[in-house]
Design a protein around this nucleic acid. Sequence first.
DNA 1: CGGGACTCCTGAGGGC
DNA 2: TGCCCTCAGGAGTCCC
Length: 285
Amino acid sequence: MPELPEVEIAVRTLKKKIIHKQITNVIIKNPKLRYKINPIIKLKIKNKKIIQIKRRSKYILISLSDDSTLLVHLGMTGRFYFNNNNKKKMDVSIYSKTNILPKHDHFILKLNKINLIYNDIRKFGFIKLYKKKDLVDSEHIKNLGIEPFDKKLNYKFLKNKIKNKNLAIKSFLMDQKNICGLGNIYANEILFFSKIHPLKKTNQLSDYELKMIIYNLRRVLNSAIKQGGSTIKNYYNSEGNTGSYQSYFKVYGREKMKCFSCENNISKINISNRASFFCQKCQRH
DNA sequence: CGGGACTCCTGAGGGC
DNA sequence: TGCCCTCAGGAGTCCC
């Protein structure tokens, strides 16, 4: 599910449901995710309390009472959902309500009255445990770029970042070392609102265009968060609900359909191996 | 070093 | 119906 808005929604739901709860047991059903789940995790986190849940880029950081942090990335299809474990039998109503298949459950945290289940069809996500002090220097976190809502992100910051870079702006936006949290959907949408062709080179962008990119990325992300994220292919979030930002897509997935701003049809091209959607007339080089 | 192609994995959908 | 191909919200690795 996951670009920044979807991860943010997941974090907010986790906060609501599992903060302050104690981990009474851990079940690793299938350790083979992007990185093999280290079985030692089970012993290390059992009986610890969940004291804080945060988002950094597209990562979920679950801090535990012994100064360790579970670092979770959802990959393409990772998601958390909950199950009531108060009864003897698992509550299976969520399976009929959503398209979740238990065969893709890989990791389960048993908490007081509730199970937190990590489900991931394609297994591109991962779960790692770090000591809190090692987390920021970890390979996953240390090279991350600026957060989209960080006040330090302004056009001068971007201008400095793209200095000497002769790279398609779409690729720049997708690279987490620059601005983090954006993925394929939102990069496409942001460039449409900014009226910039996705292949336009970073060193060709005007100050005005850089300002538009920053303005629109915040606008698009905020709006998506407000809508509960985007749901593709009946993808359900942690509470068995779908986000609805997909109905606001201006270009993503709209190849050959009419542009909402002009009479042109939306084009689709490949940039860095990812589908890129744009309007040839509204978005100029 | 920067940047593009390839890779991991499963499932959905289209064409024949 | 079945088979084969392509594609999918990510990002690390390899190679030039």
